[in-house]
Amino acid sequence: MKEAFRVRDEMLKVGFDPTITTYKALVLGCCTHHEVEQAKELLKEMKRASDMSDSGLVRYAYSDNSYNFVMYKEGGLEEASDLLPEMLELESGLVPHTLIYDTLIDECCTKGIGTKGSLDEIDKAVAYKDEMISRGIEPTIVTYTLLIVALFEVGRSWGAEDMIKEMQEKGLKLDVYTYNTLMSGYAKCKYIDAHIGIYDEMVEKRIQPNLLAYNTMMLGHCRCSEAQKLFDKMKTSGIKPDHLSYNLLIAGYSYRGGYVKEAFRVRDEMLKNGIDPTFTTYDALILGLRINHEVEQAEELLKEMVSKGICTPDDKKYLILTDMVHRER
C-alpha cells in the first residue's frame, strides 16, 4: 500500500486530481490489508473532494454496487462493519445498497454455521436485517433466505419460521429456491409434516419443484414407499435424476430388510441411464446385503469397487465396510 500511496502523492504533485478510480483502488487496497482507519480517511477525503468540485464523487462511488460488494468481501466482515457507519455519515440521505447488508449478513451467517460457529454471529446477522429496516432499506428475498438457511442450520427452526412470516407479511413471494431452503431445513430438523406441507404448497401455487426439491423430499422419505412415488413423479415431470436421487432411493430400499432386490433394480436403472455408481451407492447396497446376511454377494461388490477404481484397498472407509461384512461370516 505504501507504493500505491506514493504514486498517488506523485500524481497530486504534478497537478493531477485523483479520480473515482483512484479512490476506489486505494480504498479496496486498504480493506484488503485490513487498514480500516486509513480507508476511513480516504472516504472523508473523497467526500471533501466531492463537495469542493461538485463532482458527485461520493454518490458515484457508492452507487457502484459491484465495487461495494468486492470491497466488503475482500476486506472481511470486521472491516465492512467498521466502515458502514462511516459511509452512512458521509452524505445525508446516502445509504448503502441492500447488497452491502446482504454481504454482511452472509458473512455473519457463514461464520455462525462454520466449524467454530457462534450463535452470536447469527444474532448479529438478524440485527443487521433489523438495522436495514430501521434505515428504510427493505430486506429482499435474498436477505431472508440467507437468514432462514442459517437459522435452520443452527437448530433455530422457530427463528426461521419467524423470518418466513415476516417475509410473507411484507408481501415477498417465495421462489423455488426459498421453498427448497425451507424443505431442506425442515428435513434436517426432522419436521416431516412441515416438510411435506411446504411441498404441497409449492404444488398448490403451481411452482414446479426442481431436482433439489425432489431430492430433499426423497431425503425426508427415504425409509418409506413415498420415495419411489416422488422418484417416478420427478421423471414424469421431465427432471432427470442425478447421483443423489438414485443413491437416496437405493439407500431407502437397502436399509429395509427384504428390499435389496429393489435396490439393485434401481442400481441397474442408474447404469442404464449412464450414471456410474459411487462409493455411496456401493455402501448402501453392501449394507443391505449384510442386513440380509448375503455375505458372498457383498464380498463380490467389495472386489468390484476396487476393480472399478471406486476406492483403493487401503481406503479407510473401504476397510470399515470390509470389516463389517466379514463379521457376518
Rank of each mutant, 00 (worst) to 15 (best):
F152T: 09
V7A: 08
C30K: 02
D314R: 00
L147P: 10
M71D: 02
Q228K: 15
L119I: 11
R59F: 08
L212K: 08
F231T: 12
E89N: 12
K73I: 08
M46S: 10
G257R: 15
V203R: 15
R256K: 13
Y191T: 01
V142R: 14
G75V: 05
E89W: 03
G76D: 09
L83N: 02
L174P: 06
A4I: 06
D323T: 09
R223T: 13
H33E: 15
E3I: 09
G252S: 07
T22S: 14
V95D: 04
D54F: 10
I320S: 08
L12N: 01
T110E: 11
M270I: 04
K170P: 03
G112R: 04
D130F: 07
E45V: 00
Y179M: 12
W158R: 13
E10W: 01
D123M: 01
T115N: 01
Y246G: 05
A61M: 14
T110M: 05
D268T: 09
I320F: 02
H97N: 14
A263P: 03
K316L: 00
A187Q: 12
E161A: 09
L26H: 07
G238V: 06
Y128C: 03
K73Y: 07
L248Y: 06
G171P: 09
A150V: 06
V7Q: 10
S157G: 01
Y318S: 04
T281P: 05
L319P: 01
K205F: 10
M324R: 11
A80D: 05
G29Q: 12
A25C: 07
L319Y: 00
K170V: 02
R8K: 08
D314I: 02
E169S: 14
K73F: 02
N215W: 04
K13H: 04
E86V: 15
M46A: 15
E131Y: 07
E328Y: 02
F279H: 05
K116I: 00
V7Y: 06
G75R: 08
A251F: 10
G258W: 10
L182N: 10
K190S: 08
T19Y: 03
V176W: 00
D64H: 14
V70K: 15
A160R: 11
